[in-house]
């Protein structure tokens, strides 16, 4: 039959061929994939700000047109870099790695976060990118706040691999549209974040209804992940938000 030598040679050649094939594919396709991911990121930011018709070809042009300012903020709320002209995707804000920055935050080190300002025909919208954990892997999103830095204009969510039909429903309009008009500060100007609760806003006390949305049935851990992400990430942006509010007054 087959000698041990043959089996070893066969296995070795098979593994090398498979490895070469996959590495070649990964290397050749990387630029295309990175481009798609950058476009998706831009699309997310624009969709959160309710700018419609973000088709693939137009995303880059629209991103550069509507985003008036790509800002990097420090943990104390200070603006570290602000790019308000030219190709916004070349700016430090767009290239910032949220995962690393949030990791630095968890270790108590200095961190920086990106903020985008969008001018939608005179309406100023602030967009805060977010990153968190779902059930199977990372989830992320963008939250767009109106001029008052309190009322939500729109949100988008994305995920690496949540369960289709359950946790993955966080990306659907049915889920994200619930956030529109909700507020992240209460009447006393205290940060409340947005609660993702089973049963939705209607089960909350009257006062808190403006801070709550309905979770996804069968997607409890993903919904909790969204809840925690909103809480954690918005909290990191608080110094900046407070500072902006003061400057406006």
């Amino acid at each position: 039959m087959y000698s041990n030598g043959y089996i070893f040679r066969y296995a070795a050649i098979m593994v090398i061929v498979a490895a070469a094939l996959l590495s070649a594919a990964a290397m050749l396709l990387k630029p295309f994939q990175d481009r798609n991911m950058a476009i998706e990121k831009m699309g997310g930011i624009l969709t959160a700000a309710k700018i419609s018709g973000v088709e693939k070809e137009e995303t880059i042009a629209k991103f550069n047109k509507y985003v008036t300012d790509a800002i990097v903020v420090g943990q104390d709320g200070k603006i570290i870099e602000s790019l308000n002209e030219g190709e916004k995707e070349d700016g430090a804000a767009f290239k910032l790695n949220m995962k690393e920055e949030l990791y630095k935050k968890s270790k108590g080190e200095n961190f920086e976060l990106p903020v985008y300002k969008v001018d939608n025909n005179g309406e100023i919208i602030y967009i805060f990118p977010m990153l968190g954990t779902g059930l199977w892997g990372p989830i992320w999103g963008n939250i767009a706040l109106a001029d008052d830095l309190n009322t939500i204009v729109g949100v988008t969510f994305g995920h690496k691999g949540e369960t289709p039909g359950l946790g993955a429903e966080i990306t659907t309009p049915e889920f994200t549209e619930q956030f529109i008009g909700k507020q992240i500060f209460d009447a006393n100007n205290k940060f409340t974040s947005i609660m993702v609760v089973k049963g939705g806003a209607k089960i909350l006390p009257q006062k808190q209804q403006i801070h709550g949305v309905d979770a996804i049935s069968g997607g409890t851990i993903t919904s909790n992940g969204v809840n925690d992400m909103l809480n954690n990430v918005l909290e990191s942006y608080l110094p900046y938000i407070e500072k902006q509010k003061k400057d406006e007054r």
Binding site: L22, A25, L29, F32, Q33, N36, M37, I39
Partner: peptide, 13 residues
């Protein structure tokens, strides 16, 4: 499977 996934990621994201 990985090959198909990579190609899809690059061309039909």
């Amino acid at each position: 499977v990985i090959l198909v996934d990579q190609v899809l990621k690059a061309f039909v994201y």
